[in-house]
Design a protein around this nucleic acid. Sequence first.
DNA 1: TCAAAAATAT
DNA 2: GATATTTTTG
Length: 358
Amino acid sequence: MRNGSNHTDDDSNLFAVGGEMNLMKKRKDLDNKHDDKEFGDQTSIKKARVIWSVDLHQKFVKAVNRIGFDKVGPKKILDLMNVPWLTRENVASHLQKYRLYLSRLQKKNDQKSSTGLSFLNSLNKQQNDGAIDNFRYSDGTLKLHMDTTSHEVDLNGTVTRPTIEKIRASISDITDPKIRKSSQIGCNQPFESAESEANHTVYEYSPVSTQCSWNEVPKRLLKKEQNTQKHFQIDQPLSMNSNPSDYKSDYVSPVNSMVSEIDTFPSQSKSLIANDQSPDIVFTSSLSSKAPGYNLGCISDMEIYQRNLLLDSHAASTPLDEYYNMNFGMQNMEMSEYYDPWLIAEVPTNLYDSADYS
DNA sequence: TCAAAAATAT
DNA sequence: GATATTTTTG
C-alpha cells in the first residue's frame, strides 16, 4: 500500500503535467517502467511488502508464545494475530527468520554456559570491546556495557566489584543537570497511548520505524528491582558479544547482553551539546546498588525504540543510528509501570539461561 | 555496495 | 509447513 497508492498518485500527477515530467522522470524512472508494465492490467499492482513494525512483531511473538513453540505454524499464528491484510506467506517468512534468530540465540547461550571459566575473560574482553565499539557509533554517546556475565559474577560475589565500580565511576562522571533533566523529560512521557496503537501508527514514522529486533523481555523481570537510585540516560544499546563480527547486525539476546548507555561522557562533549539542545535520549535507566546485573537489561530494545520514536519524532539521531539502534542490544529501565503487560511479548522461556535469572 | 528483510520457489 | 533461493530494500 505504501508504494502502491502514493507513488502511483505521484506518477499520474506528473504525467499530467507533462512538460516538467522529464526532470522528475529521471528520478522516478524505475517506478515508471514498473507502472508501464503494470498498468497493462490493473490487477497486478504490486503488493506491498510487509513491514514488520514493532507492533506487528509483538503480535507475532505473542501469538507464537501462545501457541507454543512446538506446535507453532504460520497459519495458527496468522489466526491469532488477527491482522486481516497479512498473509500466511508473510507470516511464514517472518517465522523463518524468527526461528533463525532464536536458534542463533540459543547457540550463543549454549556457548556461553559451556565455556565456564572463560566467561571472566569474556567479561573483560567485552568491556574492552565495548570501549572501542563506543566510537563506532558516531553519535558521540557513551555506552556503558553490562552483560549477564556480570550478573553471574555479581551473584558469585567475587568479581562483582570491578564491574560495579566501573559503572559507578562512569555514572558519577556524568553530572546530573542535563541528564537528569532530559531523563525526566523522557521518562515522564506517556507511552501507553502510542504503544497500544494499531500497526499503522508506526508507519507514520517510517522509514526508520520499521526495523525491529526480536528482543522481547519477560515483564516479571522488570518488576524485581523497582527501587531505583540512579538515573541515567540510555540511547543506543550495543551488543556485548564476545564475538562482535558475528553479531554485527544480529539481534541481541536479552540474556546475553545487556547494555546501558550513558550519554554525556566527558570526552564527548559534542554529544552533550547536542543533547542539550534537543535531548534525543529519552529513557531513563536505573542501577540498583544491590543487584546491578539483575536490574539491567530487562526490556526490549524494540520498545525502547518505539518510545524513542514516539517521544522524539523530530529525532536528533540519524537514520543510520536508528538502524543500528534497533539491531543492538538490550536496555533496561524503570519503565515497567508504563507498560501494558499485554503488549509485551516474551521470548520462550526455555531460551533463557535459567541460571541467569533464577 | 552490501547485508538484512521479505518474497517467492521448491 | 519447512527450507532454499531470489528479489528488494535501506
